[in-house]
Design a protein around this nucleic acid. Structure first.
Lengths: 128, 128
DNA sequence: TGAACATCTGAACAACTGTTCATATATTAG
DNA sequence: CTAATATATGAACAGTTGTTCAGATGTTCA
């Protein structure tokens, strides 16, 4: 996202004349609450980065420490740690400490559900 | 995403000594194909922008033209058109022309499935 | 045809993103 | 305590993103 000038709330629609008023009235009431929608977008955004999705993919299969993930995914431990922080802040992963090692795992099964839904979509789109 | 130096393929894992070899072996074979995973990440990325998700949310309820979407979502028609182009390129929406007006709608029910999965996750996370 | 409208497109810009590097913190072993 | 290891964190940088603006297509109708 980028700018956010004053125009957003008033000007943009003022020249539009091809509206379907009936549709707008009906749909307007069915829209998801804007704040909830921002949360959903944030969730997809987090899962929309290849590195993070690789981490999610790995954690679906087993809990793992940062070093395991780094070795498995060919990333630096620092990069993994940064992405895990984002996954942590979004409540997508949880962790437990065992001595020096911190084990990460998925926070709930919704995450893997969403992952598999995306997988099904892609498989059906990109297969004959 | 950003840089992509030479280090990614060789160096990062060379100093790591805390590996759980058994886990890596087992999980390594269960990982989703990297190319498929990139497609899935791209799908989530497209749905991870608030403006685009608002458009998806609206199109779940009814097909609409650019002007309808612009008025409903308080965006300029140009901004809507740019985002629709991205949704089109990702095969998330389809369109039909009727005279001057182009009507957009969701390309298949996977998109709404994914949307609702995200919604369920957020509702259960952010509710008491 | 030419005016009017709906939509698309390209350039430009600020805001944001993911990685790297260097360094800090935390935990254990000796 | 100190050394060693595992992870976290902050700054910096290049690449990317979404919007706006101006203008280009395409379509209809008089």
């Amino acid at each position: 996202m980028a700018k956010k000038k004053v125009s957003a709330a008033d000007a943009p629609a003022c020249e539009i004349t091809c509206l379907h008023e009936d549709v707008l009235k009906r749909v307007g009431h069915g829209l998801t609450d804007p704040e909830v929608l921002r949360w959903v977008a944030a969730l997809f955004k987090v899962m929309g980065d290849p590195s993070r999705l690789k981490i999610v993919n790995a954690l679906i299969l087993s809990e793992m420490c940062v070093c395991d993930l780094a070795a498995l995914l060919k990333m630096t431990p620092s990069a993994v740690s940064h992405q895990l922080q984002i996954l942590r802040q979004s409540d997508l992963v949880k962790w437990r400490r065992d001595g020096k090692i911190i084990y990460y795992s998925l926070d709930d099964e919704h995450v893997s559900n969403i992952f598999y839904q995306g997988l099904v979509h892609v498989n059906e789109k990109h297969h004959p």
